[in-house]
Design a protein around this nucleic acid. Structure first.
Lengths: 331, 331
DNA sequence: CTGAAAGCGCTTACAG
DNA sequence: CTGAAAGCGCTTACAG
């Protein structure tokens, strides 16, 4: 691999001039610059990121903390994150927490001591204090999907609107007893879904039937059991909204076991679709969110923060995406 | 962050001694060593990996090239990869190719010029030449799931045995007309599945009904269309084996649309299960493969190679896992 | 057994 | 406008 020294020799200048020409960090005579650029090209020189990093105190690495990857929307988000990271020559350290706050805590404490330049996190909300500390210490942080701490930047979908619109949609389709299977209300996205649902039911004059959960609700089993539970107590339910796709798959299975026809007797809609809906025996209507794009945006927002931290410290930014209603067989 | 200099000062020795004590790279007097270790502890010193890397010419980063993450077994494998990488203080650069050989080629050519110390790849098999070149240049490489190039190490599942055993299992369940929906036969894992299937059918005296594909077969749509196609030409089919889960989900949907009962009229089994099978309206029997463990093993094997490259160059290793038959409703 | 010195490949004040 | 020098935080021959 050619080094800056090789380039300097070929271009007949000092390495400091090469550095300046490449980084535009000071005026370099145009003629000198083209000589340098020609040499760079000839040697197909690539700067050594380690050396740059050592000098600048940067590692060119971002930490990515997510609940899980397998069978989850985060795998799609991650593809977007990685794409932008790669384009900016950043590596990643990916950690999954299974939404266990103590696992998350341990991971954050390891990550903060000099492993990463910035952090992308979909957190449990239980370690906000650590996040604030890290941020105060100069770590760039962007929250993804879950805006748990308004003092930190975020890239999320508008779950409140999703739930509101989904409820209205079901009403228009004829449903009058609409229930919501939700997640842990201590997490912002679930609170938002509830709030949108609640506003719509009030507006429409409907009863509110809401199940929340304190442990891991992002599962097939939780969807399944919640549906059974719901129908045991509410014979009239004619629509079930679920927070995420995987719950919906559980609900569909439960309704099949109970020999309840979808969508005629009960309609089902997911509030966080990610292109799984159309791959089922009964394809599922969903508010589809642009997962890949959200990943890309969060990643580039973070890298931007990292690289412009010195000059004028970028402020807190919140970016919100809208979900798109995609009708399928379950409604 | 404390540096080696701080440790040296506190322990009253030269930084070179600190380095030696920490790396066990030369004999250090036990007393000196404990002084150093005490200082390290007091300052909670963490070596700067960038500086180490700069000196040793290593980046502490591995490249991970996979077909895709979303709705795929690779997302689970990746969790295992990341876990081991993190434990060894390695970062990753993750690239998805969608099994497009030219995308893969571009990615490999970018990655090879000094970005990574080693490569983990589930490749298309179309760029084996580049891989061999990279390996000859000193890049450590481990193939995962797909052993396309026997001169390079690999961690795979035994697909041949999976297909063989699955066929025998279906026979025992009463099936006599067993078909296989497979993938691109240019890829080793699909050839292996076919071979296991073929051996079993010959042994059992059954007809062979095999569909392969040249483009992206790892989809719901491909499974769906293949099932329709298959049944158009072979009225007697009473069992369908699919290469991967997602195809099986498509097959189940197709059979539902055709009002064919599963498992009474047709049985369905997936040859590469990854815990999706039990989450469906009709849960699916599968040869389950230990994805997470395969990820961990491939990752630690690669890091081992990277770190022991100098002393005695580790030879080519091939590690094979067995799938486990998990019966569910579809058989 | 341990210290002093050189060097990995860069960046950036400091001169001129 | 550009060169010479110092330094980022380590490792490793070279002496002694």
């Amino acid at each position: 691999m050619a080094t800056m020294k090789d380039v300097a020799k070929l271009a007949n200048v000092d390495i400091s001039t090469v550095s300046r020409a490449l980084n535009n960090s000071a005026y370099v005579h145009p003629d000198t610059k083209s000589k340098v650029l020609a040499a760079v090209k000839e040697l197909s020189y690539q700067p050594n990121i380690l050396a740059q990093g050592l000098k600048k105190g940067k590692r060119h690495t971002i930490g990515v903390v997510l609940p899980k990857l397998h069978m989850d929307i985060f795998s799609e988000i991650l593809q977007g994150i990685e794409k932008q990271a790669r384009m900016h020559q950043y590596s990643t350290i990916i950690c999954t927490t299974e939404d266990n706050p103590s696992v998350e805590k341990e991971i954050l404490n390891r990550l903060r001591v000099g492993f990463i330049d910035g952090l992308l996190i979909a957190g449990t909300g239980k370690n906000n204090r650590i996040l604030r500390d890290m941020n105060a210490d100069g770590m760039s942080i962007v929250q993804i999907v879950r805006n748990q701490e308004t003092k930190l930047s975020s890239v999320i979908a508008n779950y409140e609107t999703s739930a509101y619109e989904a409820t209205k949609f079901l009403f228009k389709k004829g449903s009058r007893c609409i229930s919501l299977i939700n997640g842990n209300m201590e997490l912002a996205p679930y609170r938002d879904r509830y709030s949108g649902y609640r506003n719509a039911t009030i507006e429409l004059g409907l009863d509110e039937i809401h199940i929340e959960s304190h442990d891991n609700p992002n599962t097939f089993e939780y969807g399944y059991n919640s549906a059974i539970e719901l129908l045991k107590h509410n014979i009239n339910i004619d629509a079930i909204m679920v927070a995420v796709d995987i719950q919906g798959i559980g609900v569909l299975r439960a309704l099949k076991d109970l020999s309840i026809n979808v969508p005629n007797n009960i309609k089902v809609i997911s509030l966080t679709g990610h292109s799984v809906g159309n791959m089922l025996e009964t394809s599922m209507t969903a508010m589809e969110i642009p997962a890949n794009e959200m990943g890309e945006k969060s990643s580039s927002m973070l890298i931007d923060k990292i690289e412009n931290q010195k000059n004028g410290r970028i402020g807190v930014q919140h970016l919100t995406f809208q979900a798109v209603l995609t009708e399928r067989e379950s409604t």
